[in-house]
């Protein structure tokens, strides 16, 4: 046989990766249902659920009122009773209204029943700054990392959105799946064949020698941009996309830091008690003292004012500055 190699991936928008994951899982498992605001005929705030109502019907694709506590509670209860609900919480800021059933019930059910019951509900929500203002822009995923019984994932590419969401819908217990708003305009290659990305495995997006940068979600692209800029200055960055925040892939991060000797953590959320603090502490516990720094949003709310929003959250220039400081490099002349 001659001819070109058969393509194994397909380019798709981020929302299409989500839609494909949900549609495949709904076809595969009749227990999967979708609950949320505007998930039906509207197709989701980002059209990530386009056409699911038509394919699966109103019993499995249900529009809910604006009632996050009940939405998460109903998802958790339905999960405990044997369904696999995907509950769409439009913005992560509103997940706070549903934290009681998620944290106090779903995350505890397996433990408190001695393993007799579980609540495999998937909460899909959207984080991050994109002009929506102080109560619609937050990245609160670090809050959820310290809840035993809860897994937290955050993709940075359409392929991972697809693979991680499918994995979440097959997990034994509750999972919070976090998209970043700025990922929706992006497109990328996703596998043609049906596949699942294991939860708990980080991905090295760029190999480097001088510093390890651990980040997740949309900040991955910002960090990769900074790594490009730094390469021109002779600084070689290894960029790790965490993908899974709980559990953390400490082995991959530690092995990288062992090679580079330095760790910078970058996140869009708050640095205080943030993802980076946990990453750095776990790496220290694993390999001993390291040289590290963290970068997150300013300790301030994220305004809808573009000037203030941009001022608040990390960008490639700030990442590069933090790397230079960590590596003891002077700021290059411009």
């Amino acid at each position: 046989m001659s001819g070109e190699a058969k393509a194994t991936t397909e380019r798709m928008f981020f929302r299409q990766a989500i839609r494909r994951a949900v549609a495949e899982e709904m076809r595969r498992n009749p227990a999967v249902i979708l609950l949320g605001q505007d998930v039906g005929a509207f197709g989701g705030s980002y059209r990530e659920f386009d056409g699911l109502l038509a394919e699966f019907g109103a019993a499995r694709v249900r529009d809910t009122p604006v009632a996050e506590a009940a939405m998460v509670g109903i998802g958790a209860g339905a999960a405990a009773a044997g369904l696999r609900p995907l509950v769409s919480i439009t913005y992560m800021d509103f997940l706070m209204l549903g934290l009681d059933p998620l944290v106090n019930y779903a995350a505890k059910l397996c433990y408190k029943t001695g393993g007799r019951m579980t609540a495999p509900v998937v909460i899909k929500t959207t984080a991050g700054a994109k002009g929506q203002g102080v109560a619609h822009s937050q990245c609160l995923e670090a809050w959820l990392m310290g809840i035993p019984g809860l897994k937290v994932v955050a993709p940075s590419t359409p392929a991972d959105a697809y693979g991680l969401l499918k994995a979440a819908l097959r997990e034994k217990g509750p999972v919070v799946y976090v998209d970043h708003k700025r990922l929706f305009p992006t497109a990328g290659e996703a596998p043609l064949a049906e596949s699942v990305s294991p939860i708990g495995v980080a991905e090295i997006r760029r190999h480097g020698r001088d510093v390890t940068i651990a980040t997740h979600a949309y900040m991955t692209s910002i960090v990769l941009k900074a790594a490009d800029d730094l390469a021109r200055e002779g600084v070689s960055c290894e960029v790790i996309d965490l993908r899974s925040l709980a559990p953390l892939d400490v082995a991959t991060i530690s092995a990288s830091v062992r090679r580079t000797g330095r760790l910078l953590t970058v996140e869009e959320g708050q640095a205080t008690c943030g993802v980076g603090v946990e990453v750095a502490a776990r790496v220290r516990e694993s390999i001993g003292a390291i040289s590290s720094a963290r970068l997150g949003a300013l300790a301030a709310p994220v305004s809808s004012n573009p000037v203030l929003e941009a001022a608040c959250i990390p960008d490639a220039a700030r990442v590069a500055t933090a790397v230079r400081a960590l590596c003891g490099r002077a700021v290059p002349d411009r």
């Binding site: 928008f13 981020f14 929302r15 980002y46 059209r47 929706f184 497109a187």
Partner: peptide, 8 residues
């Protein structure tokens, strides 16, 4: 021509 964007 018909096009597709990330949203529409």
């Amino acid at each position: 021509v018909e096009l597709e964007t990330h949203k529409a």
